[in-house]
Design a protein around this nucleic acid. Structure first.
Length: 445
RNA sequence: GUGGCCAUCGUUCAAUGGUUAGGACCGCGGUUUGUGGAGCCGCAGAUGAGGGUUCAAUUCCCUCUGGCCACC
């Protein structure tokens, strides 16, 4: 029946249970998760998350738009590359331009002219990672702005207030993340217990309306703590369950074990599961295989801004001199508009010249690469072919942990076609057909 | 034409009569996971040419070459 509870855990749990009785009735969830398929060979699953601003097919990856913009992209770019939902940061938008100003402008969707779903982070992570933290206590986290040094206090109540003003489809409970390795096991446990108390406070402070609220299960990399945290958060009326404190400096094996322990404790729960911070294709695949539905990360966009392209079977560094004379696209199988129109030589030139277009074009490509990858995973799960497609998925994942490609060894099958490649198809059909054709041709070895 | 000043990695600056002449930028690579177009880590790269003084010259002297300034 699990390990005995610590003193703090016991009292927190009791407090949570008594608090939960007085929590507002949550009624129909603004984040209804419809499970469509489960992989017969394992824990992978695919579904639909119904949100006020639309439907998110899962598993899926959310591009990060910290300051109410995915850096270098506009909403049309995001829509065209297949982004179903994006993440924005509570901490950043609270400091600038201010959540009340965003509210006066009609909320995040209207402010940034993005009509699909949005999820906001709670600010917990940024408070401890960005600004020089002044002090963190039971009440909340007192910190200094990374912009002007001014002092602020973030509490679960304050985080809910800010997120409700920002008005995303999904808000997230205020937590105290602790990166494993940076703290003692006791610190990890303490932060977990505080996160539990803060979860209850977040729920009490959040008025539901049409905004969903997700809770965060912590516990570092200790499977026992992960299981306890997941069980605790599961007992609360959140609309979705987040896996926090990962995607840090843990090894893939440690992370996989932590995910397995968390998911095991969520067995039978119908809510969506979101692993915060993970963005490498191979890492995502590992987590999907263990039952995770949603992800976010700065990684694909950040590495794009520093010249790294994720392509089928590996990755390229556009700063490498060899690309200056290559007329082929980043990835002949990719259906993004960057690959449809521009050569590696041009991109390599743009990066060296520090031209703004470089960042946009490569961000589009990397995010499209990951969106396509997730779409392939969804299709495989829904068609029951995940197990047989797994080797191919791994082989073409691209990104960290996959080979660094030189000029000669790309998985290139397109002839050196002189001029225009197939035109980029903005919405769906042509893009899908192109991708399918590409996937079929991958059969050759 | 005369006088003065200058000449060090691709660029821009340091240093020194005596181990491997140093930095920055550029170049060649690497790193990046609930956002820093940031940062960080490696590697490569030079004493204009020719003489002389000296145990020893990138350093002191002469000539040449090139550049800058002033005067005619």
């Amino acid at each position: 029946m699990g390990p005995p509870l610590s003193q703090g855990e016991r009292s927190a749990r009791l407090a949570a249970l008594s608090d939960a009785a007085t929590l507002p009735v949550r009624g129909t969830s603004p984040a209804r998760f419809e499970l469509l398929a489960t992989d017969p060979a394992g824990g992978a699953r695919s579904g639909r998350l119904h949100l006020p601003h639309g439907v998110v097919e899962t598993p899926d990856f959310m591009p990060v738009g910290t300051n109410a913009t995915v850096k270098s992209l506009d909403p049309d770019d995001l829509r065209n590359l297949g982004a179903q939902i994006i993440l924005a940061n509570t901490y950043h938008l609270y400091l600038r331009p201010g959540h009340e100003r965003v509210a006066r402008m009609g909320g995040l969707n209207r402010f940034m002219d993005w009509d699909r779903p949005i999820l906001t982070d709670s600010g917990g992570f940024q408070v401890v990672s960005l600004g020089p933290l002044m002090r963190i206590g039971e009440e909340g986290a007192r910190f200094r702005s990374h912009l002007d040094g001014s002092q602020h206090l973030f509490t679960p109540e304050r985080s809910m207030e800010v997120q409700q003003a920002l008005a995303p489809d999904i808000a997230v409970a205020f937590d105290q993340p602790v990166m494993p390795g940076a703290s003692s096991p006791r610190d990890v446990e303490r932060a977990m217990e505080r996160t539990h108390r803060w979860a209850v406070r977040s729920l009490r402070a959040h008025r539901k309306g049409d905004q969903a609220l997700f809770g965060i299960a912590q516990g570092g990399i200790d499977p026992d703590l992960r299981a306890r945290s997941a069980a605790f958060i599961r007992a609360l009326p959140f609309d979705g369950i987040n896996l926090g404190g990962l995607a840090g400096d843990e090894t893939p094996e440690q992370r996989n074990r932590a995910v397995e322990a968390t998911i095991a404790a969520l067995e039978g729960d119908g809510r969506v599961r979101y692993l915060m911070g993970l963005g490498s294709p191979l890492d995502l695949l590992d987590a999907v295989l263990r039952g995770v539905d949603l992800f976010d990360s700065v990684l694909p966009a950040r590495v794009a801004r520093t010249g790294q392209a994720w392509v089928a079977g590996g990755r390229l560094n556009l700063y490498n001199a060899r690309h200056l004379d290559e007329e082929q696209p980043l990835d002949a199988r990719c259906d993004c508009r960057t690959c449809a129109r521009f050569s590696r030589a041009y991109l390599a030139h743009l990066f060296r010249a520090e031209e703004l277009l470089a960042y946009r074009l490569l961000t589009i490509h990397n995010l499209r690469h990951l969106a396509s990858f997730m779409a392939r995973i969804r299709t495989a799960i829904r068609s029951g072919t995940l197990a047989t497609e797994l080797p191919q998925l791994r082989a073409t994942a691209g990104g960290p942990g996959t080979p660094r490609l030189g000029s000669g060894d790309e998985p290139e099958e397109a002839p050196a076609r002189g001029a225009m490649r197939p035109r980029y198809a903005a919405e769906g059909r042509v893009a899908v057909r192109t991708r399918k054709r590409a996937v079929e041709s991958e059969g050759r070895e």
